Amino acid sequence: MTATLTQQPIYTLACDAPDCGATFEAKHDFDQGSDRATRRAARRAGWDVPPPRGKGSRSPYDFCPEHKRR
Rank of each mutant, 00 (worst) to 15 (best):
F24M: 07
Q7V: 02
R36V: 14
V49S: 04
P9S: 09
L5F: 01
E25L: 04
T4C: 03
G21K: 11
R69E: 13
A42P: 02
A22D: 14
P9H: 06
P50Q: 06
A42H: 03
G56N: 08
C15S: 00
F24S: 08
A26R: 04
P18D: 14
P9T: 05
R44S: 11
E25S: 11
T2K: 14
Q8D: 05
S57L: 05
A45I: 08
D31V: 00
C20K: 06
C64L: 06
D29S: 15
G54L: 03
R44E: 13
P51V: 05
P65N: 13
G46S: 09
K55N: 12
D29N: 14
T2I: 11
A26E: 05
R44Q: 12
Q8H: 09
R39C: 10
S57V: 05
L5N: 09
D48R: 03
P9A: 07
P50Y: 07
R58L: 10
L5R: 12
R36Q: 15
K27L: 15
T12E: 12
D31C: 06
T23E: 13
A26V: 05
D29Y: 12
A14S: 13
Q32E: 12
L5Q: 09
R40C: 04
D29C: 11
T6V: 14
P9V: 04
P50G: 07
G46P: 07
W47H: 03
G21L: 11
P51L: 09
D29Q: 15
P60M: 09
P50T: 07
L13V: 01
S59M: 06
K55F: 08
C64T: 05
T12G: 02
T2M: 07
T2S: 13
A26P: 04
K55Y: 11
P18H: 10
T4R: 14
T4Q: 10
R36M: 13
D29V: 14
A41C: 08
T2Q: 13
Q7I: 00
Q7R: 10
P18T: 11
D16Y: 03
P65T: 12
S59A: 11
P60N: 09
K27W: 09
P9Y: 01
K68L: 09
Q32N: 15
T23Q: 14
F63S: 03
R36E: 15
P51W: 06
F24G: 01
A14F: 00
A37S: 13
S34E: 12
P60A: 12
R53G: 08
P9F: 01
D16H: 12
A3D: 05
D62N: 11
P9K: 05
W47P: 02
Q8A: 08
P9Q: 08
R36A: 15
R53P: 00
M1K: 13
S59K: 10
K27Y: 07
Y61G: 01
R44V: 05
R69F: 05
K55L: 12
L13I: 03
T6L: 12
S57A: 14
T38I: 06
Q7F: 00
A26T: 05
I10Q: 04
D48K: 04
H28R: 15
T12I: 11
M1H: 13
D48I: 03
A17I: 00
I10D: 02
G54Y: 04
G33W: 10
